[in-house]
Design a protein around this nucleic acid. Structure first.
Lengths: 184, 184
DNA sequence: ATCGTACTTGTACATTCGTACAAGACTGAT
DNA sequence: ATCAGTCTTGTACGAATGTACAAGTACGAT
């Protein structure tokens, strides 16, 4: 019960955040189903007990990780919104954003981990909806609600294809497809 | 070492198949990351030892489950191809097929489990590619390669959206979007 | 009939898991 | 200075995990 104990500075808020961030990373690399307390603790550089102190159960920990992921994605989305606002041509700008997004495969996997987790666990659904409805909302002012949803779905599908096949993105083709969906 | 042992009839081929099918079901319900030898054995109604006898490691078992899933998806796809051939209007027929596909959420989840597993494990990639390239190939004769890929991506995205939000499919909107992508 | 091989099955085992908790340490109020 | 409560950390423990394997059974070749 009493090993050496050089206790670190206290900062509960930072610990919660660090654990959520570490959980997000573990999910991105190993998947929701292989996420464990110990992997998260190791990734965060914190003792095992810290995980259960701040998040009573593993499900809580995973939910916190996914919530953190959505927050990150949200700020990315704000970036997208701003760059689209400044862009001369929407389809071309969207294509470029997709290309950049595909640069970080870990983050892309995380997005689909979130979707699958939400598809399986109803409690996570609102979280995933925030993310899924984000892009359509950004696009709506430009092309309307219906086209916004269609284009968003197209991008999700194209991103999934690129994730699985690891093939190069056909930028010209994507731009053309977006343009088709955008024109009324 | 020596419990009661009413040994069942021998049929190795059927056992392999039963284990692969059971694995597929466990993956669909619990996810790749939570798939275990014991869950598969229980689902197949076989003893634990049978799993490791036919599939040396858990990865082998999971790969077999995913391979089985792709085979199932492939026959579904053949169905799609046949029905599209007989359909008077491609966009409307596709929309109807998507609506039916969404009826079995377990199968839809399985599809995305496959994609995520392939995104994480290179060895599974060819398997997922077979599936991802299947629909574009079916569509190509009707609309060309580029539009086939675009429409396929659109459907994947729409299906994902429906899976996550559990919202009703907007059939009319989808048909219209497909038509936009299909017309040259 | 017998025999070898391929299959079946129960069980064993080290490891890892989620979770619980006791013991210490910090901190703000008094 | 003291105390209560919050935070920190190491360790414990039963359950579940992947895998190994010995013992037993069926069956085709001989």
């Amino acid at each position: 019960m009493t090993g050496r104990r050089p206790q670190r500075a206290r900062d509960p808020q930072a610990r919660r955040a660090a654990l959520a961030a570490a959980t997000m990373e573990v999910i991105a690399e190993a998947g929701v189903g292989r996420t464990t307390h110990r992997a998260v603790a190791a990734r965060a550089g914190l003792p095992l007990g810290a995980t259960t102190y701040y998040f009573p159960t593993l499900d809580d920990l995973i939910a916190a990780g996914l919530r953190h992921a959505v927050t990150m994605l949200q700020t990315d989305l704000d970036d997208w919104a701003e760059r689209l606002r400044a862009a001369p041509d929407l389809p071309e700008a969207l294509t470029e954003l997709v290309r950049e997004y595909l640069g970080d495969r870990r983050q892309v996997r995380l997005e689909y981990e979130l979707c699958l987790a939400a598809a399986r666990d109803e409690a996570l659904r609102p979280l995933a909806e925030v993310w899924m409805r984000g892009l359509p909302e950004v696009l709506e002012p430009y092309v309307g609600a219906a086209a916004g949803r269609d284009i968003s779905a197209l991008l999700d599908g194209i991103i999934l294809l690129a994730l699985v096949t690891e093939s190069e993105l056909d930028a010209a083709g994507l731009t053309a497809a977006i343009r088709r969906l955008a024109t009324p």
